[in-house]
Design a protein around this nucleic acid. Structure first.
Lengths: 341, 341
DNA sequence: TGTGTTCTCGTAAACGTTTACGGAAAAACG
DNA sequence: CGTTTTTCCGTAAACGTTTACGAGAACACA
């Protein structure tokens, strides 16, 4: 079963060096010999031992994706990431790279797991999921000189790594614009309390758009809570208790929106009738909830593919002859109008 | 940054053999020497190179999970798998094992990807997601003598591998029992058309329960379609066109149920009022759909943990002294009564 | 003191690759 | 035919570990 390069060499009565060169398509090997090697490789069912190549080449041919379940996600996790993973993995596979998924326990910041991956040289590069505003993982990786790319922007690190993000700022502004156009002036914003960077971007867009419409930003209409259903459920009543309650709420997360709608229902408030509800990142839950939630949708699978491309292009060992190039892209979110606003 | 075992040896002026033995907790090394080695390892920031150990030990310390997106899942994938993955990964990490996620393109049977993993010895074992009734992946792995475990049963292979499955048979029967108790006699079953094993189990349970209640199994009330929303949407009208239409439908898949409900809605039929709807595998979508769908819920994260345990116990190299033991477990699905029946 | 045992450690081989180097044979050239 | 170039291949080292083997030193025991 396990036939090595030595078996091939013995079988063909040539040296292992020649076999290796033939297999790797080097120029200095006779066309006829190469043919025989390739044939023998097929009949002997040879395929190179990854550990061997990795050791010799100093490259593992695999990329680690750090997936961090948020606390409270134990039940069903982030459906969000699956299509992203699919895109990421597909592109990596084209270059013969495997994808290692590393998760921290929900709630920890997975710094330890990250160190382990880097220090044991378990992967050639790392992909970080949602970045935080100040992200120690980014600091660590840049300081360690380890190649990585991020889904999301951050303040940390020099801007010397590829990153792909969604335009939360514009989505926040678009959401406000749409609500204002529909006659709303009291618009609340509910976002996660962790220092996830996208929450800041969203809030910036929200604030700027309000000001642009000459609407004063009311701190009582801005609340933050745990990034799950319970968080939305807990925090939504806060903005409703404002002296001058909102007629519209923008949720920065689907799970929080679902919790928020539950709280609203208990107050006898119906989204789509008594309250306009908008969600910034669309998931299938928004679509199937009743009323179906108006939301902004990302193109997750293409994003995964794109980030893989960007990562590979930034690593000299993988990039073409043009060498490393650092890219940063921000992708739009597309409005999907439904029944909740 | 990259300090090797040689660096430690040079620094301490001892041989690399001793360093390795000290690090690995072998008995034949002086307690004092071991202390000094461990200390040096800490100060020099040493951690073992995985490729090196893998090559020498013939073990990669990683497990491959074959995730197969169903066709049509491009949009949001299987939220199902995330909690399972979380459990699996957590347990594997306890043993220092990494998790490699391998996906095929949606639709292909990923036989090629599997071969590649096995032949390049990229992982020490494989975990297969939903098994098919006759599963060539299982045949291949048993024939190759490669360790693996499955989520789901199958007819293929000797029963010499650990497997964990849900009791779809009982869930199907329970669903029928419940509907009969509520006065239904015309109960339809809609399941995926691929030869996924759970679909057969479900149907068996469904049939047996009907007979137990003295209800004839009507082939017109059984339909199968693509395992996604479109499939449910397409196939549900078929059973409704029966000469004697059903008053209840059991869906074997959440996405198909959602599509089915859409079709029902277009016919003016309201789940929970004019039609009882039950779903066999619960997901968050069932909970948030309107009306909330009565469904049978799996304990995904514990299942992931358990399958990891079973897999490790079956591999001599990882198992304790008791050696390999093959386990097969079937876990119950828990009824979550909601508003759709 | 002599013999046997136990501790502790160094030596060196091995895992499966890739690749720098050099050399023999063949080809090209005058 | 002699010289230079090209083509092709073998040799051996290297990547970072682990581990079988053996040897020296210390110790125990008579």
């Amino acid at each position: 079963m396990a036939s090595s390069i030595h078996d091939l060499a013995r079988h063909l009565n040539i040296s292992i060096g020649t076999v290796s060169r033939a297999l790797n398509g080097r120029a200095d090997v006779n066309a006829d010999t190469r043919q025989r090697v390739l044939e023998a490789a097929r009949t002997l069912n040879y395929s190179p031992n990854q550990s061997g190549r990795s050791l010799r080449q100093g490259a593992t041919h695999s990329i680690a994706f750090m997936l961090q379940p948020h606390p409270g996600d134990q039940q069903y996790g982030e459906p969000f990431f699956i299509p992203f993973l699919i895109g990421l993995q597909a592109k990596l596979a084209e270059s013969g790279l495997d994808l290692i998924v590393v998760m921290g326990a929900p709630g920890d910041y997975q710094q330890e797991r990250l160190r382990r991956v880097v220090e044991t040289r378990r992967a050639d590069a790392v992909v970080l999921a949602w970045t935080r505003r100040e992200d120690e993982r980014i600091d660590y990786l840049t300081q360690a000189g380890f190649p990585f790319a991020t889904l999301g922007r951050s303040r940390s690190g020099a801007k010397s790594y590829p990153s792909l993000d969604l335009d939360f700022e514009k989505a926040g502004a678009d959401a406000v614009d749409r609500l204002v156009a529909r006659g709303h002036r009291r618009i609340a914003a509910i976002r996660p309390s962790l220092n996830l960077n996208f929450a800041y971007l969203f809030l910036d867009g929200y604030r700027k758009a309000l000001r642009r419409h000459g609407i004063e930003v009311d701190p009582e209409l801005i609340a933050s809570g745990f990034i799950n259903e319970a968080g939305g459920y807990e925090v939504t009543p806060q903005v409703m208790r404002s002296k001058n309650p909102p007629t519209a709420i923008i949720f920065n997360n689907d799970a929080m929106a679902l919790g928020g709608c539950k709280a609203l229902a208990e107050m006898g408030i119906r989204p789509g009738h008594d309250m306009a509800v908008t969600v910034i990142v669309d998931t299938p839950l928004c679509r199937y909830f009743s009323p179906a939630l108006t939301a902004f949708r990302p193109a997750l699978e293409p994003m995964g593919q794109r980030l893989a491309e960007m990562l590979l292009a930034s690593i000299p060992a993988f990039a073409g002859p043009q060498g490393p190039r650092i890219m940063r892209e921000v992708w739009p979110l597309e409005l999907v109008a439904r029944d909740s606003d």
